[in-house]
Write a protein that binds this DNA or RNA. Structure first.
Lengths: 126, 126
DNA sequence: GATTGTCTACGAATTGTTTCGTAAGCAAAC
DNA sequence: GTTTGCTTACGAAACAATTCGTAGACAATC
């Protein structure tokens, strides 16, 4: 299945991934911190996301409780894959260099990445 | 200035970055290899991209010649930055790991990335 | 039991992207 | 000079995302 959330939908998914199951009001309050938005706008968005199966919902209470129905890892993976294909002509390493070039990681992050690379290298040698 | 091409626009930009200045017909012929599309559709898209200043054009000949008016590096950089913010909560290294995890680079690419990392490390030590 | 506040549902307006039909210009071929 | 073929320009239709007003349901409060 292919996951392709819009930017607005991604904002909501990020909140749900972080906070876990939440009502529209709870999500809306987080959104409001960063931008102007009417309550019914957030409601409608989340209803549509539910129709698209991006969100699950529990309607047993008056205030429905929504949960992300797609995993953060899988969603990130698909977005990255699409970007590698569309923007970097299929070259993952080009994306990596671009990401590193503009957002220099600190030493700790560097070590993490290097450890990761070594693992891949080991597998390559096999 | 903020560059935010749509997916269709990116397809055209990719062709122009690769081929250099081209007519609508030339771009269209490349596009057709990968997908169905009418000639006037491509034309209209490129005209709109010109209005948005994504493309330059030379109208001295009957067949106008279009050129990308945004650099590949800058465009890629902005898209990557937006993605790091929207999808990876600001963490470039998380994006890097995700990219490496799903699209294992070959040995040559690995070396390139490692060289890059070492340079960053050197700078960090200063 | 009327009022108030919060919720969902629904539909419509707005905006942006994509697609393409049609007309008009122009030059080469007949 | 008329036909043919390629070009640009224009406008409209189709579609999707976003926004929000309004109505109705429901429960707590007066």
């Amino acid at each position: 299945m292919n996951i392709k959330p819009t930017d607005s939908e991604l904002e909501i998914l990020n909140i749900l991934w972080e906070k876990g199951p939440s009502t529209v009001r709870e999500v809306h309050e987080v959104l409001e911190k960063n931008k102007e938005a009417g309550y019914t706008t957030t409601l409608k968005l989340m209803q549509i996301m539910h129709e698209k199966n991006l969100l699950k919902r529990d309607v047993s209470n008056k205030s429905h409780v929504y949960t992300a129905n797609v995993s953060q890892e899988k969603t990130q993976g698909q977005i990255v894959k699409r970007m590698i294909d569309n923007v970097f002509n299929g070259s993952a390493s080009q994306l990596v260099m671009q990401a590193l070039g503009n957002h220099k990681p600190n030493t700790e992050e560097l070590n993490e990445i290097k450890k990761y690379l070594e693992e891949i290298e080991k597998q390559n040698r096999k």
